[in-house]
Design a protein around this nucleic acid. Structure first.
Length: 651
DNA sequence: ATAGGGTTAG
């Protein structure tokens, strides 16, 4: 071949191989190019190709990279590192140990600082130490990389992710020349292990603080629920970037302060900053939290104009937002028309969307489609699936999926998976089975697991088991008001009023506060919040007036009578008989009927579970007023139409 | 020759 031609060809290939965003299809084409030119055995070109496939977030590309790697006659350290790196970022991060060990045992190759940094990151992402982490640390020492700045920094985050706070701090203190990234890593480690004072102390000691250090502080406070501190740091930082804004927007949304969250976004726009796709997805997640459907739609349009719909995470956020705003069909539209290759998160978000809306069978069908399309589900996919089964009463399917997760996909069940299984049996009235399941769990059950079973006891009225479970909960979390309320409901259903009164007394003695229930409704892009028993204002007055009118209509036309049982949910309310008529979701619905134009869907978001009486009232309103009402409660959606609910009264 | 650690997004 002519020298110039071959030089030009090589340059062309290098530029092809250097593209950071590629699809599997173009990578395969590049592979074909290499093959034709005979360069596919050339370590440099092949290495580049491998990297291109491996860094792509696509599942298929990773599998393709693994196949390429296994067929390459003699991979070099760079290729090993590439594979270790991509596995450490995958849903099964511990699998990165396998090529690393191969590299360690290789007769002529040696691991370098990259190999250690990548494999340690894998253990960090796995988040559970036991032996591999410590062994890797000693191997790094043996190979002389433990004081390497990148390896050291990853060691800090690995120990912190695995909960070994002391080791994380020790690695840092022993570093000969920590740079600002290492300082940031140790601050993150403090937050990660719950030591807020420690984090502040280290932050004060830092020799240099760049923007990221401040962002680390913001993120730490936000995750620890210290929004006041976060706000202070935010106002004091010398400059802010997109990450700073996103952290505040998402943090306040997760803390339930939606006004603040949207306020930060408006401020960002006022300052003339062009929001990136991350801050846009952040605001969108705030919409999802708040159930602000109309605002979410505006953002969707904004994203289209900004040209960010080609980014997969933006589509995932849209699916999540639409479904959490009660519009599962719009979520499906986004999912089906994605202008970019889907990833595991896209499928999982769609499965979760169907699950939340009680469309369990459809969620399972979509999962099978996901498998057929060659995508690998992760732990969260299975949480969504098990949730779908428990909310649709699909006990057998749920059990089968739980086994499949362990046996076929090798995913070790986390506490959340066990929680779903307890819920699955419990809701389906198989209380004994749920109890036995908890007793033979390989990890020790936490309060949430027991609380799930207590909830099931209260639905199905099993006093004996409820008392046993409550005793366990009292040992673990003695001052939890919702546990007391749940047990008192069990007594109330059985007519054991003395016991109900006893619990009420205990709660007063311990001055326990029941979580106040609130509901929100969005009307003309404004979000209105209602809290039961709050001081009257213009809005609540109007809601109350309309609610009285509605209730009268329901009594006369549908023979509705308030359900006594639900009154008992509010055992702390002074005016018991009256309280059930004042539940926040009823007020929100009444306000919606008064304000929204006819034909519009009423979308209500509630922080607690919807009570039995409100559920009945919503069904009746949907029939009498011929209106569709979508209520999102703390665990799922209820779609009321023509007197029926999508949950088929199973919730 | 090629890549890497700390902050935001299910």
């Amino acid at each position: 071949m002519n020298m110039n031609v071959s030089k030009r060809l090589e340059e062309g290939l290098v530029s092809l191989l250097s593209k950071s965003t590629t699809t599997l299809k173009t990578s395969k084409q590049t592979h074909a190019h290499l093959y034709v030119t005979g360069l596919h055995t050339h370590p440099f070109f092949f290495g580049k190709l491998l990297l291109q496939c491996a860094i792509s977030i696509s599942d298929h590309a990773l599998q393709y990279a693994l196949r390429l790697f296994h067929h390459f006659p003699s991979p070099d350290t760079f290729m090993y590192n590439t594979i270790i790196r991509s596995l450490s970022h995958s849903s099964t991060p511990l699998t990165s140990l396998q090529p690393f060990i191969q590299l360690l045992r290789h007769p002529t190759l040696f691991p370098d600082s990259f190999s250690f940094a990548f494999v340690l990151k894998g253990v960090a992402n796995y988040g559970y130490l036991k032996r591999p982490g410590i062994q890797l640390h000693s191997q790094a020492f043996r190979h002389g990389f433990d004081d390497h700045i990148f390896v050291g920094t990853t060691l800090i985050s690995m120990y912190a992710e695995c909960g070994c706070y002391v080791s994380a701090r020790k690695v840092f203190e022993e570093m000969s020349q920590p740079n600002v990234v290492a300082w940031n890593a140790v601050v993150t480690a403090c937050f990660r292990c719950g030591d807020m004072e420690g984090a502040w102390g280290v932050f004060q000691r830092m020799p240099i603080r760049n923007l990221t250090s401040w962002n680390v502080m913001l993120a730490g406070y936000v995750k620890g629920g210290e929004l006041g501190f976060a706000r202070r740091v935010f106002s004091e930082m010398p400059m802010r970037d997109d990450v700073s804004w996103s952290t505040m927007i998402v943090g306040f949304a997760q803390g339930g302060s939606f006004d603040d969250s949207f306020g930060f976004f408006r401020e960002l726009l006022r300052e003339g900053i062009r929001p990136s796709e991350v801050s846009l997805t952040g605001v969108l997640s705030a919409c999802a939290q708040a159930g602000a459907f109309e605002f979410g739609k505006i953002l969707h349009g904004f994203m289209e104009k900004a040209g960010v719909l080609c980014i997969v995470s933006v589509n995932n956020a849209l699916i999540d937002s639409y479904s959490k705003c009660g519009n599962v069909d719009m979520a499906k539209m986004v999912f089906q028309n994605m202008p970019v290759v889907k990833c595991t998160v896209s499928w999982t978000s769609m499965i979760a969307a169907l699950a939340m809306h009680g469309r369990g069978e459809e969620a399972i069908r979509l999962f099978h489609e996901m498998e057929k399309s060659g995508f690998t589900p992760d732990g969260i996919t299975f949480i969504s699936l098990l949730y779908a089964c428990s909310h649709s009463g699909l006990v057998d399917q749920g059990c089968a999926l739980f086994s499949k997760m362990k046996d076929l996909y090798g995913i070790e069940p986390a506490i959340e998976h066990y929680g779903c299984m307890v819920d699955l049996y419990g809701r389906a009235a198989r209380l004994q089975k749920a109890y036995e399941f908890i007793c033979q769990m390989p990890i020790s059950p936490n309060a949430i697991i027991w609380r799930t079973l207590l909830g099931a006891c209260s639905i199905h009225g099993n006093i004996e088991l409820a008392e046993l479970v409550k005793a366990r909960l009292t040992e673990m979390d003695p001052n939890n008001s919702s546990d007391h309320v749940l047990l008192s409901n069990v007594y109330a259903v059985a007519g054991k009023w003395k016991d109900v009164a006893g619990i009420r007394r205990t709660m007063i003695e311990k001055s326990m506060k029941k979580t106040p229930g609130w509901s929100m409704i969005e009307i003309d892009k404004v979000i209105y919040g209602f809290v039961a028993g709050e001081k009257p204002n213009e809005v609540t007055e109007e809601a109350h007036d309309k609610l009285r009118e509605i209730m009268l209509k329901l009594r006369t036309e549908e023979g509705y009578a308030p359900q006594v049982r639900s009154v008992l949910h509010d055992i702390e309310e002074e005016e018991k008989e009256d309280s059930v008529t004042k539940h926040s979701e009823k007020l929100a619905a009444a306000f919606g009927i008064a304000k929204l134009p006819k034909g519009k869907v009423l979308r209500i978001v509630k922080n607690l579970r919807v009570c039995g009486d409100c559920h009945t009232v919503m069904k009746l309103i949907s029939k009498v007023y011929q209106v569709e009402i979508v209520v999102r409660d703390r665990s799922r959606f209820h779609s009321f139409k023509d007197g029926f609910c999508s949950c088929r009264d199973y919730w």
